[in-house]
Design a protein around this nucleic acid. Structure first.
Lengths: 93, 93
DNA sequence: TAAAATGGTTTATAACATAAACCTATTTAT
DNA sequence: ATAAATAGGTTTATGTTATAAACCATTTTA
């Protein structure tokens, strides 16, 4: 009935990030920061966790002379998200 | 876009409890414990929080000689739950 | 009359979310 | 040329949380 909710996704900010990445397939750090209205520090930490879990891929490069962090969802991440949503539905329906 | 998720409800066990109470309008401690597969300690703590938030009402009585804890959702709790679900949908749809 | 079970509560702890402080480099103002 | 502000983050510190472990009072069973 109540299947466990992936703790990595059951977090407001990480869930918002994943939600955005699903629609976009690629997003910059600053974009995610704006859309989620989070602080850079918090976002940085949560992106790290998602990456370590293999849910997203983070690419560091430069745009002009400035550092640029780009995030992409992985297939693992997508699957995890979908399962999370399925499980969550049992709680809220 | 991403409205804040009520931290009181964005918790696996508390959400499960609320979900159960919505269907039932009244439930015993042991029933909630079984359905949620939680430990008594954890459940006790989380029920306390829900009560302090005014989301549920807890009544203590006896069944025969044994203590009996009964929980009911309040209208405040119901409203909070519904709002939580509405907000959550923006994250998962 | 022990021992186990019932129905919980309280306490300890590890993980978590978050903001604050910090860092490096770049651009702008003086 | 130098100082101050901005960009784009990371690291660290701190308060909350979720959770399990330990505990407690009573009752039932062996």
């Amino acid at each position: 009935m109540f299947k466990p909710l992936d703790p990595l996704l059951h977090s407001q900010l990480r869930l918002a990030v994943m939600s955005l990445l699903i629609g976009l397939e690629e997003a910059e750090f600053t974009f995610l920061k704006e859309k989620t209205e989070s602080t850079a520090g918090n976002l940085s930490v949560q992106l790290d966790k998602l990456e370590k879990a293999g849910y997203i891929q983070i690419e560091k490069s430069f745009r002009g002379k400035r550092p640029l962090t780009t995030c992409k969802i992985t297939s693992t991440g997508l699957k995890a998200f979908e399962e999370y949503v399925e499980n969550l539905k049992n709680y809220i329906e």
